[in-house]
């Protein structure tokens, strides 16, 4: 199992983040490696991403099913691979920030993880541009993104090891891209 969590804050009302997050068309293209998505219903969608694990990249198609829709605080979804043996779960959590917790970094316990993270960040930066935000120290809202993926098949332990660094980058980038997009909109209005 590969798992990551990224949490960060923004000077934005919870409702603003919720309004944006609840419509996947708003943020689909902000997902790392996004190729396309098709909405099948209010809760189901098909996604194609280009998954990059440092040494190779390949198109991954999967189905996303939203199992919890509890605005403006929480969205939980399950995902299932269509061309790869994988399953997983993702959770967006939005809370008013108390200022107690600091913006987290995805866990990077070892050299390899940090190395592949660096490679994937470089790739993402070249393909989708860098995400640079001024994260407020406290106040506003906190967006936390959890992602867990369980590859299947005999190679699962190897794929886990290859995928973990890329997932760290993906979680961080998606969270920051969403908030960056909203911050830009807010600045334009003000």
């Amino acid at each position: 199992m590969a798992q990551t969590e990224y949490s960060t804050t923004a000077n934005l009302p919870l409702e603003t983040i919720w309004d944006f997050v609840q419509e996947m068309d708003n943020w689909a293209q902000l997902v790392t490696g996004y190729q396309e998505h098709v909405k099948e219903s209010a809760t189901d969608s098909l996604w194609t991403l280009k998954g990059d694990v440092g040494v190779l990249a390949r198109k991954v198609q999967f189905k996303v099913h939203i199992v919890e829709w509890n605005g403006p605080e929480r969205v939980r979804f399950e995902l299932k691979g269509l061309n790869e043996p994988l399953e997983g779960e993702g959770i967006f959590t939005m809370t008013a920030d108390s200022g107690d917790a600091e913006a987290s970094e995805p866990s990077s316990q070892n050299w390899f993880t940090r190395m592949i993270e660096a490679l994937v960040r470089l790739f993402v930066k070249r393909k989708q541009g860098a995400v640079e935000r001024d994260v407020p120290v406290s106040g506003g809202s906190r967006l936390t993104f959890n992602l867990r993926i369980d590859p299947g098949g005999p190679m699962a332990p190897m794929i886990n090891a290859m995928m973990q660094p890329a997932m760290n980058v993906a979680a961080e980038d998606l969270s920051n891209r969403i908030l960056s997009e909203l911050e830009q909109r807010q600045n334009q209005v003000s």
């Binding site: 070892n110 050299w111 332990p157 090891a161 290859m162 973990q164």
Partner: peptide, 8 residues
């Protein structure tokens, strides 16, 4: 293999 990948 996964362990060795993690340890580079």
């Amino acid at each position: 293999i996964g362990q060795r990948i993690t340890e580079d």
